[in-house]
Every structure is written in C-alpha cells, then in structure tokens.
Nucleic acid binder design. Structure first.
Lengths: 209, 209, 209, 209
DNA sequence: AATGAATGAGGGTTCATTCAT
DNA sequence: CATGAATGAACCCTCATTCAT
C-alpha cells in the first residue's frame, strides 16, 4: 500500500508539467539571463497558458529558486569529501574524481552553468542567496581539506581562507572560459592541469624566481 | 571625414553634465545594485530633469556601458606587462605591484566591482560584451606572460590557455570573497598569498602526494 | 409545457450538494465579505471539486443571487400586513411583532445583512436587481399601510411615498448602526423606540417648536 | 512673487489632469460600482494613457479615497450645527436649511450619491473606512442635537443613539428612493415632509392608536 | 455525477523613452 | 540646452470558467 502523501509538497503540484516548466525556465535563463527572463518567455517555451504556470509555482522567484536548488543539489552530490584513511584512494585520485564529476556535470548542461556563474543572481537583497551560500559551503569544504593537509604536513602552511577562495575561483575561471568555446576538451587532461596548478603552481623549480 | 572633432561620442555631447550623470549612476549602482538602478534614481541623484538625461545618453544601457568602459580602462591601466629585461625589477615584484594596484582599485570601489563581477550585464546576445572581451584580453596577457616564462625556463610547461584562466579565476575568487566581508585585510599579505598560490601551489614539498 | 417537474431551476439540478454550496457560500460571505468571496473559498468550504460547483450553479453570481432570494423570502415571511379588523390585535402590537421578527432575523445572521445592505450586489445594469425590487415592495407595503391609516383617520395626511421611504430608511439606519457594535441590545426596547419615533417623532409636545 | 510651492502635495501633482481623472473615476463608479471600476475604465473615460494615471495618483485606492474625501467635505460643509441662541433662527428653519443644502447637493450629483449610499465601499477591511466614520460623525452630531433638545425640554426623552441612527436612515431612505426616479420633486416640500416625519411622526393625534 | 488541470482575459502597476514647450 | 508631463508596452499575478476524463 503506497501512501498517497509520500512527497506532498506545497500548494503547487508535481507532475510532467512541473518538470517541463522547470526545463523551459532553465533554457530561458540560459539564453536571456535571469533578470530578463519573464513569465511570458517561460510559458511560451513550455507551451502552457499563463494561469497554468501558477498552478505549479507560486510565483516567478520560486521557479528560479527550485532550479537553483536542483542544480546545487546535483553539484553537491558530485563533490565528495576527500578521505585520508589508510584504505582510501590517494588524495589526488579522489580530487581528480571530484573535479571530473563537477566539470562533466557543468559542461553537459550549459544552462545550468550560466545560472551558477552568474554573480548577479540574488534576485533581491531581501531574499537570502542560496547560490552564495552554496559557494560559501564549497569554500568551507575546500578550506577544511587544506587545513587537514597542512596539519598532516602534506600541504604548506598558508592563509587557507584566501587560498580556498583562490582554488574555487580557479575552477570557476576555467569553466567560464570553456563556456566561451564551442568544443569541449578531453576532461582528464583538463582536470590534471587544474590539479597540477593548484598543487604545484606554475613555477619550474622551487628556487626559480 | 566630416567632423574635425576629437571624438565622436553618442548622439549627445560631453560636458560637466555628462560627468555628473555618470557619477550619479555609479553611486546608484553602489547603493541599489545594477538591476534595480532606475533612470528616476539617477536623475534624482544627479539633480537633472528626465529629458536632460537623454541629451547625454541615448538610453539606460549606454550609461552603464560607459561606466563599465571607464572601469575597464582604469583596471587596464593598473595592469602592466611583466618586463623581463636585465634592468627590470624582479618579475615577482612586478607581479606584486600589478596585483596590488588591481585589488586596491577594486576594493576601494565596490560599485565598480558589482559591475565587473556581474556576468549578466549585457544580456543582449547581439551586443558585444565589453566585459567579456576585457577578461579575454587579460587572460591573453596572462597567457602570454606564462608562455614567455616557460620559454625562459622559469615556469614549467603547461596548457597555458587553461592555466591563464585558472590564474584569473583565482584572483576573481579572492575578490569575490572579500566583497562578502565588511572589513578589508592587509593588502600586501593578501597579494603575497595569491602569488605564492599561483607560483607554488599548495603542496608542501615537490614530492609530497 | 414540457416538463412536469415542479420547478425548473438553473441548468443544473437540486439536491443536497446544491444546499451545501449555498451554505458554504453564505459562510464565506460572512467571513470575508461579498466582494472577496471566491469560488475557491466556497468549494473548499463545501468540500467539493471545482467543476461540481458549475453543475449546480451556472456562475458565481447565481449563487449569491440565490442566497439573496432566500434571504428576501425569509424577510418577506417575517413581514405581515397590518390587519385592522375588529378582531385583530392592536396595530401597534402587530407592527411591533413585525419589526421584532425582522430585526431578530437580521441580527442573527450578519452574513445576510451584508448582502442586504450592500447596494452594489448586482452591478450589472442589464440584470434586474432583486434587492432593489424587494425594497420597493416593502416600501409599497408600508405606503399602503400608511394610506389605510390616513383614510381611517389614525394617521395624519402626508406624502406617503416619501414617508414610507423614510420609515424604511429609519429601520435600515438602526440596523446598520447595530451591525457596527458587537453586542446586541434588548430587542423589545429597540423596537419600541423605533415605533415611537415613527409614530410620534421626537418632539416633546405638539406645539413645541 | 508667487511661491512655487504654495500647495506642494505628495509625489502626485495637481492640475487639470488631476481633476479630469477624478471626474472620470466618479462617473465610472456611478455607473459600474466601486468594485467593478477598473483603471482601464477610468483612463479610457479620462482619455489619458495608463502611465499618466499614476502620475497623479499613487494607486487605485487613492483615487477613490480622494473622491470620497471631497464628497464628505462638501457634505460636511452643507451641514451646520443647529444654534439655539436667542438671536438664532428658529431650529426648524435651521434644520430646513441644512436638509435643503444636503439634498440639493446630493440630487445634483447622482454619481456622488452612489458613492455615499454604497455600504460596500470599504475597499479592504485593513483600510479604515472614511465613509463609515463620516456617517458616524453625522450620527453623533444628530444625537448631540437631540440631547440638547431633550435637555431644553423641546424634545421628548428617548434613546438618542438609536433615534439618531433612525433620523439619518430616514434621510438616506428618501434620497435612495429619489435616485430611482428620473425627475426631482420640489425640494422645499420634500424637506418639510421629512422634518414633519422626524418631529411628529405619522400619528394623527397623540392619543390615536 | 463528479473531477480538477488547464485556460486566458483581465487586474493593477512600473518605467524607459519621447516631445512639445 | 533643458524640461517634465505624457506615453504605452511590458511586467507579475488572479480567478471565474471550461472540458476531457
């Protein structure tokens, strides 16, 4: 006997329509940017009537919040904490897997990227910014990994709050650039390059410079 | 060529009014954010009439584009190519000076930042994106520096088109984070940390990992 | 005549559903006022589906019209013509009974009042106004009573079409005021006061003034 | 030198437009009722563009509030307290003048009447009801007059809070009836009839009944 | 009979832009 | 040059009504 209220949500309902609106909205944001995406655009793309939109979402903001939450959730699933136990894979391997998952997710859905890379998302100052808080969370994860690495003597001491921001930024920078080119590179190489950069920097020998 | 005048601008002309509008618009952006800045806000702040605005700017976008261009120009001035001649300062010193200039400029004017970090400024696909092209330019500068460094054996060989993007991204990441906190850090340390990260990465010894 | 059925109503039929919708609508009016009462409110209260509503009523107006008609009917039942036969109760007693019935009906159901006192119920000029015609009927009854009273020498001659309107208005005025206060007065006193006013006016002695 | 800010009002401005919108809105209310009067109706009638409306009124409610306030003000001017000094005109004469002013004002502008007689005005429960409070004020004036009259022995003792409501209602009743007929009666007679009713009631002799 | 997802006209409001003065 | 009243397209949202199931 299946309970009919396994996943009862708010007034709006789920269903294929719900998904198609989400899809349409994501596409619209990708091509027009968040602030210019209008309900009219979305319903035109989804092929539904005006009122139907409000059957599934209580207002404009909530669609975008849901898209964002979905994206964040998928992204969060792709990022797994680095384990340092004796039976764990080497840290670099774990890091590589993480980055590969993240990048392949991002590059497979450009619309999603334009959402995640758009710093101007925060619709209103009054609303909290789920995107910003997501990045803060990721930054905190990176920082904590750095702190652990330093404690273990694997990494050099540094101001981890800044370096974590730099690491995250480096990834975003690369993703941002890739979005500008039509064809995608071989992901393994790219990830190696990013990791090498983050681990060793660009210098040739420690005493150069 | 018809007019001998130095610089043909928008339909309208230059003058003190032009500057005061630009100033007002910048202030409004700083206060209310780019997307909520309205013509009404700007003219109220500038103390001019509605129509006067359109005497100096052909539309709303053009004000922000001009502000952006100004910002880019100042930023571009702050970035000077690394010279590697025998009489030049050490590269790291030059890099340090560059980054310090850039960061102090950005952090001193948050309004400017919100424009620079906002990817969605020019949402019209038809219009060119001065911001994107600026970043492309900076990335190219970094890449060219990296290429030179590699040629000279100072830097290790790497895919410079990606590493350049990572370097730029790292800086943006740090700036982005600093904007979220009210108080600013000591700039010298911050810049050193960024440079150390970019040069040496985070690893403790070359053979660690 | 085609159908032998007792009463052809709206397209739909009668039944327990019909009554429960009427009940729900009355309750909603009482709670939220006529103009804010929505179909959604009503069906939620009645516990029926949206479409079901239109099985019993052709549109929103018709529910309220039916409620109004019911109210008018009950009100009409409460008003009985004054009999002046030798075996009848004294006119004042009959009048007193009438007014008491009317007021106790009105005051016991405020929802009903808000419909009855709201002149703007049927805003469509094309539709007849059952409320207005009801009041016209009541006014005619009062006037006819006045005429009879004058003929019999009980009442002073006057322009009965105006005085009837004044009498009816006086009652509505009192009801309207009572609706603004939460607690109800003793009805017998109130009715006496109204009757005294209508019969004797406010003057102390006939020759005062 | 005329000060340019003799009558600076809120954001919206005065002027012929302001008045014409007010006029249009009044007409629309008169013919469609308050709740069905839409901005579209009003601007169509006023012959202005949508945006122009909001140049003069901050929202829909404010137009109606202003209309109501104007009406109330004019009505309030028509009602003057009854003076009972030795040099004053006889009370009945003063009363007659008051009623004549009120009725001639009301009957000369039917649109105004439909506003004043519509009990359903109160646009929102949250907003205060200027109309209701006006009538409360008038009722208080009448009551105070009644109290004075009773003290002086001119009027018979009675529950003045109810009788005042009845008096006011009587007038509203007569006005309401007159609105249903196209042609207006001779005002002097009408007023006399109302006053006679309020003073002496309808009874023939004190001891009748 | 009963349902409820879908509809779309219409609501109030905003704001970049124009143009007669 | 400067003005600011006027514009109207576009915005988000509501809700009475319909119809395939």
């Amino acid at each position: 006997m299946e309970s009919p209220s396994v996943e009862a949500t708010d007034p709006p309902a789920r269903g294929p329509r719900h998904a198609s609106i989400l899809l349409a909205a994501t596409a619209i944001i990708a091509e027009r940017g968040y602030h210019k995406a209008s309900i009219s655009d979305i319903i035109a793309r989804a092929g539904i009537a005006r009122g139907t939109f409000y059957l599934y979402f209580s207002n404009k903001r909530s669609v975008f919040e849901e898209i964002l939450e979905q994206a964040i959730e998928r992204l969060a699933e792709a990022i797994r904490p680095i384990e340092l136990g004796p039976d764990s894979l080497p840290p670099r391997t774990q890091l590589h897997a993480n980055l590969t998952r993240v990048l392949s997710l991002l590059l497979s859905e450009r619309a999603l990227c334009s959402l995640l890379l758009d710093n101007s998302l925060s619709p209103d100052p009054e609303g909290q910014q789920p995107l910003a808080s997501f990045f803060t969370r990721v930054r905190a994860m990176i920082r904590s990994s750095l702190d652990t690495g330093i404690e273990m003597g694997l990494l050099r001491p540094c101001r981890t709050e800044w370096v974590a921001a730099a690491c995250l930024g480096a990834v975003r920078g690369v993703v941002g650039q890739l979005l500008e080119t039509p064809d995608l590179p071989e992901l393994g190489q790219l990830v190696d390059e990013i990791i090498d950069f983050a681990l060793h920097g660009v210098i040739a020998r420690p005493d150069a410079f």
